[in-house]
C-alpha cells in the first residue's frame, strides 16, 4: 500500500494535476481522439489516480496511445488536465531500468523516405529515457 501511495504522490507531483477538481462529467473522454485504442480512458486516469491505482494504469498499453493533442486539457471545464496524468504515469514507467518503450534498434524497420525526423525525436522523447 505504501508503495502505491508513493507512486500516486509521484504522479500527482510530476503532473501538477489536482484530481479532486474533477466533477466526473466525462468531457475529456468524449473529446478524446484515441478513445478506441485506449483500455483506460482520460476520465478513468483521473479517477484511478485519485484512487491510487497507479500500477493498473502503468501496466496498461493506454499510456502509449495518448496523442498529446491537449483536447482534454483545453476542454475540461474544471481545469483538470488529464493528459498530464497520462504522461506522468508513462514517465513513471519508462524511467525504470529496462522499461524504454521504444528502442533505437526498432526504428529502421519503421522508416519510410518521407518520414520527418521530428517523428522519431518526439517518439524517443515520449517513450524512452
Amino acid at each position: 500500500m505504501s508503495h502505491s501511495n508513493n507512486a500516486t504522490e509521484q504522479v500527482l507531483r510530476s503532473s501538477g494535476v489536482d484530481v479532486r477538481k474533477c466533477m466526473r462529467c466525462g468531457k475529456c473522454t468524449a473529446t478524446c481522439p484515441a478513445f478506441d485504442e485506449m483500455e483506460y480512458h482520460p476520465h478513468q486516469f483521473v479517477y484511478m489516480v485519485e484512487k491510487g491505482q497507479i500500477e493498473r494504469l502503468a501496466a496498461s498499453p493506454s499510456i502509449y496511445k495518448c496523442l498529446s493533442c491537449f483536447a482534454c486539457v483545453d476542454r475540461c471545464p474544471r481545469g483538470v488536465e488529464p493528459a498530464k496524468l497520462v504522461e506522468a504515469v508513462r514517465l513513471a514507467v519508462i524511467r525504470q531500468q529496462g522499461q524504454n518503450h521504444m528502442k533505437p534498434e526498432a526504428i529502421p524497420a519503421m522508416l519510410d523516405e518521407d518520414m520527418p525526423q521530428q517523428l522519431f525525436v518526439s517518439a524517443m522523447r515520449k517513450y524512452s529515457k
Binding site: C25, K27, C28, A30, C32, A71
Partner: peptide, 9 residues
C-alpha cells in the same frame, strides 16, 4: 434517452 456523460465535439 438520458446518458451519463458529456458531448466533446
Amino acid at each position: 434517452h438520458y446518458v451519463k456523460g458529456m458531448v466533446g465535439k
